[in-house]
Design a binder for these strands. Structure first.
Length: 434
DNA sequence: TTTTGAGTTGTTCGA
DNA sequence: GTCGAACAACTCAAA
């Protein structure tokens, strides 16, 4: 007779500490079998040296080492979630599967299917809130509808926030003994899952007191890099959101906390309006006749538009998997307005390259840039790529870091003249929207 | 129900 | 160089 266990399924919560679902699982009656599944539905779209897969794998190794200190280990499989669970069910008498909730459209569907499959076999499927302070419909208007404007959402979020309730630490130290006692569960190597080491490494995050205090002032200047680099860690759960909110609250400045609230704002938007993944939130913006010139799109991707701040950002993205936020706004505006290329093209490219890719934030911010989203910039608000240099990279230090040939004859001519591009965008938008 | 105030991140033009 | 208005009206949220 196979051993009776509860499975804890790790997904984008890759840590043992302050992990709500893991903590709850360890308080159950049965030993906990910790599992991670490399989902082939997701993996098949990725290049073999994908940096995020590398990061995930490295983090799984660290977790496995820690679990082994407690006489246990992590089971790492590959396949569709259904197939992986079938495999687990053939080896163990699984009573319950416990996991943390994920709100993306693909994830919601996946979880529904897994739950249905498990319930046929009378296995429980329990999910917990872990990756946000407020989820789904916990922060809504008085009439129950979701907020679609940030500021009132943020105010209500803060009104409802209670430190006693929302940022409790879930320390698993006392219950780790409830892990399954098997030190050599199957742990697929990077090679086993068909990947190779990446040139790009996910950087450590900095949420030091000094960074958070100065964040409001320095975060806009790409050469100072006063940003936290927290994105990939929040994305894959290598830090806990509760710990980050605790840090944010210790600061005298609330700019950092507001950024964390933006993350949840866009998550609840995607939850309530999943169609915004590929449709404009404001539907009349789907009428815009994008030029979608492939050659120009290629120049944008390669950082060869002839606008140095745009090009610096695109080259930083390609080389490091990161782009400074200020520059993200500029390159997005440039693609949608100056080049009149569909925001979905830009969104897809960011999804491919960004280590901190978060579907809700990426879609939300691209729609913001194109004018089609919630609380979006009005369409006539078109960034001037030269003015942005004067304001945010005056000494051109950031530009020179990424565009070596800047200032020489080797640097390319502008793909479109600013004034012409601007007027073309204004005319096209106006025509399409009226 | 109607009214009122307000809304992430900008640029250009003319005085 | 600096300032305010225009861009173009719109929609949301709450009283």
């Amino acid at each position: 007779m196979a051993q009776e266990v509860n499975v804890f399924w790790f997904r984008r919560d890759l840590r043992l500490h302050d992990n709500v679902g893991f903590f709850k699982a360890l308080h159950g009656k049965l030993p906990v079998l910790p599992v991670f599944i490399f989902d082939t539905n997701i993996l098949e779209e990725l290049p073999e040296d994908d940096a995020r897969v590398n990061f995930i794998h490295r983090q799984l190794n660290r977790m496995n080492d820690k679990l082994r200190e407690h006489g246990s280990s992590l089971l790492v499989l590959q396949g569709s979630p259904e197939d992986a669970f079938s495999e687990i069910l053939s080896d163990y008498e699984v009573k319950n599967v416990i996991t943390n909730r994920d709100y993306e459209p693909y994830a919601k569907q996946r979880d529904e299917e897994v739950e249905a499959m498990l319930s046929e076999k009378n296995i429980g499927f329990y999910t917990y809130k872990d990756q946000v302070i407020f989820e789904k419909d916990e922060v809504v208007k008085n009439d129950g509808d979701p907020y679609v404007v940030y500021t009132p959402y943020m105010k209500t979020w803060r009104d409802q926030f209670d430190p006693e309730k929302h940022i409790k630490d879930h320390d698993p130290a006392k219950v780790l003994k409830n892990l399954i006692q098997e030190k050599d569960l199957r742990f697929l190597s990077l090679e086993d899952i068909g990947f190779i080491p990446s040139e790009i490494q996910v950087p450590d995050y900095d949420v030091s007191e000094s960074l958070i205090d100065a964040y409001g002032k320095t975060r806009n200047f790409p050469d100072k890099d006063g940003t936290s680099h927290l994105g990939p860690h929040l994305r894959f759960g290598t830090v806990s959101i509760r710990q980050m909110v605790r840090k944010a609250l210790e600061s005298s400045s609330d700019v950092f906390l507001k950024e964390l609230i933006w993350r949840e704002f866009f998550m609840q938007i995607l939850y309530h309006y999943p169609h915004t993944v590929n449709k404009a939130f404001k539907s009349k913006y789907d009428r815009i006749p994008w030029r979608n010139n492939e050659e120009e799109f290629e120049r944008w991707k390669e950082g060869k538009t002839g606008y140095p701040l745009v090009d610096a950002g695109m080259r930083q993205l390609k080389a490091t998997g990161y782009m400074h936020n200020r520059v993200r706004m500029l390159v997005a505006s440039f693609l949608c307005k100056h080049l009149l290329i569909d925001w979905r093209w830009g969104e897809a490219y960011f999804a491919e390259k960004l280590l901190d890719y978060e579907q809700a934030s990426n879609v939300g911010n691209w729609q913001w840039a194109s004018g089609s989203g919630v609380d979006a910039a009005p369409y006539f608000r078109i960034f001037n790529p030269m003015t942005q240099v004067d304001k945010f990279d005056k000494d051109k230090r950031y530009i020179k870091t990424w565009v070596e040939e800047f200032g020489t004859d080797a640097y390319c001519d502008p793909v479109v003249e600013h004034k012409k591009g601007r007027e073309r965008a204004l005319d096209t938008y106006k025509e399409a929207l009226t």
